[in-house]
Amino acid sequence: MAEGTAWNVYDALKMASKEIYGKVLTELGKENDKIVGVTADLAKSTNIGNFGEAFPERLFNVGIAEQNMMGVAAGLAKTGLIPFASTFAIFACLRGGEQVRSDIAYQNLPVKIIATHGGLSFGASGSTHHCTEDIAIMRSMANMTVVVPADGFETAKAVRACVNIPGPFYMRVGRGFEPPLHEDENFDFEIGKAINLHEGKDITVIACGVCVLQALDAAKVLEKESGISVRVLDMHTLKPIDEEAIMKAVLDTRRILTVEEHNTIGGLGDAVASVIAQSGKGCAFTKLGIPDEYSVIGPPEDLYARYKIDATGIEETVKALLGKEIEADEDWSDED
């Protein structure tokens, strides 16, 4: 950050998910006059403000009132509109949480919640602004689709795609300082379909959000330095989860590591574990994420390193997981 500027910490999505969310939403707004926006004094900070600049009469800023914001979004949707609702992740899933569940999800309304500052991305802000619970909360709401994109390009594609989903949608992004994963927008992105970023046969790392790039970096290092062949799955959609890709990874590699910027309870790891457990197939399995505690404060990179969800932590854990014994299963491939 440049010193001496009246720099605004809330300028999320500026660099990584770029002004991408605001920009794409503005483009969509031109194509579809049913799209409207709601926010709660975080128009600038979440970049939904871009949409408001283009369409002042279509963005409703309700002030610092997230419950009201979600209720208003539900009401707008009831009149046939497609509201995008943006605030920080913690306020979207907890402060306005019951409104999301009972006004939006229960009534199966097409409200698109784009929540910023997710995970530990607002590191120095402390636990009131960290959000390591949203995936668990949103996954357990019936009707809800849940996406955690790995970078700005995926954010852009998901924003476009979510308009065509008939029901409610939750997407969590960071604060806007995350490095891009993809080099450009030339890749297939489909909600509910994991992206295989790196082929491997010894182990599969399944990650979402900022952890995907870390997993990919780890895979490259492990291959080069230790000859370990790591498959990397970008599981951008948490719900509905890509069971096929998970089971293929189990069958092909027999070892699975999940990595997420979320409490290890109820997030990606548990979603993957539940698919595996219900399949009846055994495999070595470890979850990386935030342990069941409130994080210390600090720059996000330091926190990611502390909780081993950075490339170094992933490398270490992959090695440990490769050493874990698993029961041989003779009939493994026939059963498929």
């Binding site: 607002f122 120095a124 009131t128 210390v296 404060i297 600090g298 720059p299």
Partner: peptide, 9 residues
């Protein structure tokens, strides 16, 4: 700073 007792809140 990292691990400080004092953050933004």
């Amino acid at each position: 700073h990292y691990e400080s007792c004092y953050g933004i809140h």
